[in-house]
Simulated assay, not measured.
Amino acid sequence: MNKTYPTAEAALAGLLFDGMTIASGGFGLCGIPELLIAAIRDAGTKNMTIASNNCGVDDFGLGVLLKTRQISKMISSYVGENAEFMRQFLSGELELEFNPQGTLAERMRAGGAGIPAFYTPTGVGTVIAEGKEHKEFDGRTFVLERAIVADVSIVKAWKADPAGNLVFRKTARNFNPPAATCGRVCVAEVEEIVPLGSLDPDHIHLPGIYVHRLIQGQQMKQIEQRTVRKREAH
């Protein structure tokens, strides 16, 4: 099975449709599938629900899909540094389903593992738990959270082989593995595709069984917040 495609547009061909749900890896601007996001923007897919920790920044990452009004709902943990995200939410233009970060990660992981729902104590007694089923275990109250199963997952990795085995680099691993597993189809963009058999099996973070399509490309790797220490006088 050939999983390698020449471009992001080719890798997404036949997968996109209006009203779809997409799970996207990344945290801030770290480990985001920027080439695939740009291809979705160019495809003009509308009314999408996006499950991702946050929504990039105003002019980069998932933020570009907010700017073009292609997202109708975000399932997120963090509004972050995105002023347009905040504006659309406060004005009622964008539906937002807030999730604690651990709950969001577990909802994706559960979807990939075939678990339809799970109980967690996180959010009990807050607006997060309103309207959801509650149950007591060992004297403690838990709230039921539904798993996330997306139509398509888009993720960013460091290296891959032609079979789709993925290696993530440091903190760019973040939400990418659980996001990858919860999609009915997973499309991954990577910095380098290496020959089959050259990856140490013990160093593979995500087995290729979860990855259906693969592209290699050059990413911009922007820095969300640059902090520089003042030069010390000598």
Score class of each variant (00 low, 15 high):
A110E: 01
V57H: 01
L65E: 03
D59K: 14
S77E: 05
P100I: 03
P100V: 10
D18W: 02
N2P: 12
N165Q: 12
K3Y: 01
S198F: 01
V155C: 06
P178C: 09
A51Q: 01
I193A: 09
A113H: 13
G197D: 15
G56S: 02
L196N: 15
L96I: 07
A39I: 02
M86F: 07
D42R: 12
A11E: 02
L36S: 08
G197Q: 15
R184M: 07
L206H: 02
P207L: 12
K46T: 12
F142G: 10
L104K: 05
P33C: 03
C186D: 07
P178D: 03
E136W: 00
A180G: 05
A23Y: 03
I128E: 04
G61N: 03
T181A: 11
A83N: 07
R146D: 14
D161Q: 09
F60C: 00
S76K: 10
G31M: 01
S52M: 00
G139H: 04
G80D: 11
G112Y: 06
R184V: 03
E130S: 11
L90I: 08
A110I: 01
I128G: 00
A160L: 12
G217E: 06
K132D: 00
E133Y: 06
L90Y: 15
K67T: 15
A23W: 03
T120S: 14
A23H: 02
F142W: 14
A11T: 14
G125Y: 03
G14E: 02
Q101W: 00
Q222Y: 09
P178G: 08
V167A: 09
F118M: 13
E84S: 10
F27V: 14
L104M: 09
T45R: 15
L36T: 07
V190M: 14
L214Q: 11
S24P: 01
Q219E: 09
C186S: 09
G26C: 08
G14T: 08
L66E: 13
F142Q: 05
I37P: 01
I148R: 04
I209E: 15
I128Y: 09
G111S: 04
A147K: 00
P33E: 00
G114M: 05
S198N: 05
M74F: 13
E145D: 14
K73A: 11
F142K: 07
G125F: 01
G31E: 01
T68W: 01
S91N: 14
S198H: 04
R173I: 09
L62S: 10
K67N: 06
G139C: 04
R87T: 06
P116R: 05
L35N: 13
K159S: 09
A113L: 09
L196S: 15
G139D: 02
F17N: 15
A83D: 14
A172Q: 07
A180N: 03
A10E: 12
D200L: 12
E95K: 10
L104Y: 09
A233K: 09
P178T: 05
W158A: 10
M220C: 04
A83Y: 00
Y5R: 08
N176L: 04
D18N: 12
G25M: 02
C30S: 07
C55I: 11
G197V: 11
V79M: 10
L104Q: 06
V143Q: 12
P162Q: 07
L29I: 13
K67Q: 13
I223H: 13
M220F: 08
H205A: 14
